[in-house]
């Protein structure tokens, strides 16, 4: 399978990438790790006339921890995250999520930023970014801007990255005090993509009650979505298995579900509740 023809540029700075994107407008597509885009090009489901390969931009690489936050460069690969001991210490679910993405070779090249910008409805990172209250940093012709994860996933395969913009980094605040995280996924047995994936963050107050929690669902609908009714049912409460099971029943309320030959809409709706419960139990245990 050979992709259609395209012009290729390999800028070495974000500024250069942005001006190339501006120059080529709608014709241009950003190439990062290529593990979503190249398969689409080979199947000729996409044929952009211009590719701007940001893979050589050093400033987009690396994972840093500073000032109570973790900053993950858009070009950090899934493997970089999987093998970052520092990150694993702060957010064990980042490691756990990375290990269930694709396979080792895919993780060696596929990028965190690329997966978020691509906004695949069955991608794993969108749920994690929502649960961890991440902030996306974008650079475009008008300079830098930030977008909260809550506003970043717009629709099926559509993120808030505008044409001409590059996602440069993702900032994740490290919660104070006791907290736990978990990502639970029902993988498609052949593709490995999430049929349903649920990420949860639980923060405990000094009184042992749930001070805050965030739960996000991927795979089930056209875009990753928070389970706010579930979150509201748990905030301020002393968490028990029973309470979590009750709250998880509200996960997916009001959501649009996707259905396919493998998992119907109603099956996905059921899985959302089951995996929300598992993710919350995992996060609660990790917080203790």
């Amino acid at each position: 399978m050979i992709p259609g023809e395209f012009e290729y540029y390999a800028p070495t700075s974000v500024q250069e990438a942005v001006s190339l994107l501006q120059q080529h407008g709608e014709d241009a597509k950003v190439l990062a790790g290529g593990h979503s885009l190249i398969p689409l090009l080979k199947l000729r489901l996409a044929s952009p006339p211009v590719l701007v390969d940001i893979g050589r931009i050093q400033e987009l690489k690396g994972i840093r921890r500073q000032n109570g936050a973790v900053t993950i460069g858009a070009l950090a690969t899934h493997a970089d995250i999987e093998f970052s001991e520092d990150l694993r210490g702060v957010f064990p679910l980042m490691h756990d999520t990375a290990t269930v993405i694709g396979d080792p070779m895919v993780r060696n090249l596929g990028t965190f930023g690329g997966a978020l910008a691509h906004a695949d409805p069955a991608g794993d990172w969108p749920a994690v970014a929502l649960a961890l209250n991440a902030t996306m940093r974008l650079t475009g012709p008008n300079g830098e801007r930030t977008v909260a994860a809550d506003d970043f996933f717009v629709d099926l395969l559509t993120s808030a990255v505008e044409p001409g913009e590059v996602l440069t980094a993702v900032e994740i605040p490290v919660p104070q005090g006791k907290y736990g995280t978990s990502y639970q996924k029902f993988s498609h047995p052949a593709s490995g993509y999430a049929v349903v994936g649920v990420a949860a963050l639980v923060q405990m107050g000094a009184d042992g009650a749930c001070q805050d929690c965030r739960v996000a669902i991927t795979g089930a609908g056209p875009k990753a979505t928070r389970a706010t009714a579930t979150e509201d049912a748990l905030k301020g409460q002393q968490l028990t298995e029973e309470l979590i099971a009750q709250a998880a029943e509200q996960a997916g309320n009001g959501m649009d579900f996707l259905g396919d030959i493998f998992a119907s809409e109603s099956y996905r709706a059921h899985l959302v509740k089951v995996f929300t419960k598992r993710a919350l139990l995992g996060a609660m245990q990790a917080a203790q």
Partner: peptide, 15 residues
């Protein structure tokens, strides 16, 4: 230094 699927990499990316 790491394993990749060479059907999913352009030769120019490996330059």
């Amino acid at each position: 230094g790491q394993a990749v699927k060479s059907c999913t990499v352009f030769a120019v990316q490996a330059d």
